[in-house]
Amino acid sequence: MRPDAAIGVWTLRWRRFRRHRTGMASLFILLALIAFVLAAYPLESLLHIDPDTTDLFARFDPPGPGHYLGMDEAGRDVLIRLMVGGQISLLVGLLATVIGGVIGTIIGVIAGYFGGRLDGVLMRFTDGMIALPLLPLLIVLGAVDLTKLGFSADFAHSGAAGFWRIVIIISIVDWTSIARLVRAATMQIRERDYVRAARAAGAGAPYMMATHILPNIATPVIVSFTLTVGRVILFESVLSFLGFGVVPPTPSWGNMLNNAQELVTTAPMLAVYPGLLIFVTVIAVNFLGDGLQHAFDPRSEK
């Protein structure tokens, strides 16, 4: 028995993670970013600013009292829009990751647990998805006219439709890496004797997956989810920037750069802020994933 055997596995991992400098730094940066985007609520009521109200007399106003980062091309407060846009971007990142992750996990667990022909079909499907050029596909999906799918015109052009559309198209495209990872891990766990013991006792597939397989493959899946969040935030920003994602007036870090090409010459800082926030968020998320991987890997114990 190891001397620290009585300590829970999560305590050990937290200890390892705490020693991972970039991982810890990223954690703090991400917490700060979340605090920043949530600060929109108190700030809005405190300064009586509405993020969507335009004021054509205040276009490109420089920073000043009440408007700490100045005004954008439509005379809206840049700081508030960065905060609210951040809420949207982060939420899209989390939701699309969770939905795509659930799709990938279900497909991976089923393929890995049952094996055989079902596995063959599901993995050919996954391979086919992996082989596709993602961005063009996302653009086409983003361009789909919702009224042609039977939605009302009111809904199709609402902000909510724009938000959910991007969440859904990213999640139906970006689940493949998790599916493969989950499948490989499931195939390993499936052959463990504790799974056999449960099978000998008469356990069915749902019990087996919920009780033995998912908890035991959780660690690589958590790391993979983390890295996916970063990728999804990038996808959201690209699609919204190109005009196929979150639709204005709802701000997102991506669509705040819609007019960026002209902004670069007239008001360059308006092109710098949103991109910088995306960059910092994604790099922090990636470093967090790296730190988690380190913390979850027993071999990293020196």
Binding site: R192, R196, A200
Partner: peptide, 12 residues
């Protein structure tokens, strides 16, 4: 019921 060879793999 069954008892396996490897006690390390037999328990979740």
């Amino acid at each position: 019921q069954i008892v396996f060879q490897d006690p390390f793999g037999a328990l979740d």
